[in-house]
């Protein structure tokens, strides 16, 4: 039994594109701006402009749309569910009646708005994770959070935790697989019984996994100390982030488009 074949971390896909070359900070800020605008915009024209803008961004990234759409699949259910809930629960002009359920004009309007928002939310975040490597993302987050150090936000520590998590996800997955095999070899059964039984069956996997993870953490801490690690102070960075003219142009265009989409009400 193979549980975790071909583990890839994140969804990053390498392409030689303008979007990939943008500074991660610029991309993170762009996504934050897009998400904010999505929830402020209140007109179909606005949504259309943002949609068009996202479409351009994704095409510029040279990533096949199927990767972007893959991110939407698991959330399709939630989107349709919210759509229906809004259809039936919003009070207003009744335009159709099924049994005791009323569909209202306002309901359709709000339902569609919310679904489009969710749809764009996923599009923009996938755009970010598809075009930014986890390392760049971590560096970007560390830099962006660093100004929050004044109010004691541990920017470096958060970034270090993310790095270590990324590093150890595949290792721990391999280990889980080994433990599962070892337990199966001893006669453990993970495939039958009801839900409660099945969850109980996973205890013999979780416990050794945790114990090993703590051992690893111990070893890693010693190795880090041996390599002069003593927190973020005075640390330099191997990867240098630099914002150049393309980044400037990109963020200006983005701001312009988003403001237009917000203000444009036909």
């Amino acid at each position: 039994m193979m549980f975790f074949r071909n583990i890839t971390i994140g969804q990053y896909i390498y392409r030689d594109s303008i979007i990939h070359k943008l500074d991660p900070r610029v991309k993170i800020i762009t996504v934050i701006l897009i998400i904010t605008t999505i929830f402020l915009v209140n007109s179909w024209t606005g949504f259309f402009i943002i949609g068009f803008y996202l479409f351009i961004n994704i095409s510029l990234a040279k990533v096949h749309p199927k990767f972007v759409l893959k991110g939407i699949k698991p959330l399709l259910f939630i989107i349709s569910f919210t759509l229906l809930i809004h259809f039936f629960t919003t009070p207003g002009d009744i335009i159709y009646r099924i049994w005791i359920l009323n569909i209202t004009r306002e309901g359709i309007h709000r339902g569609l708005f919310i679904s489009v928002r969710l749809f764009y939310l996923i599009l923009s975040t996938s755009w970010l994770t598809l075009t930014t490597s986890p390392i760049a993302l971590t560096d970007g987050i560390e830099k962006l959070l660093s100004f929050l150090k004044i109010i004691r936000v541990p920017a470096h520590e958060i970034a270090m935790m993310m790095t270590i998590a990324l590093r150890f996800i595949p290792t721990l997955m391999e280990e889980t697989e080994k433990i599962i095999k070892a337990q199966i070899a001893r006669g453990a059964d993970f495939e039958s019984g009801n839900l409660v039984k099945r969850i109980q069956n996973f205890l013999p996997i979780i416990i050794p996994l945790f114990i090993n993870a703590f051992h690893r953490a111990d070893d890693l801490a010693i190795a880090m100390e041996a390599r002069c690690y003593r927190g973020g102070e005075g640390r330099t960075h191997y990867r240098q982030l630099s914002i150049n003219s393309i980044d400037h142009v990109f963020i200006i265009i983005t701001l312009f488009i988003l403001i237009v989409s917000y203000l444009w009400v036909v």
């Binding site: 986890p134 390392i135 590093r167 880090m224 191997y238």
Partner: peptide
């Protein structure tokens, strides 16, 4: 348990 970063050079 000694490698910290996500790529060799890092």
């Amino acid at each position: 348990n000694q490698l910290i970063a996500t790529t060799v050079e890092d």
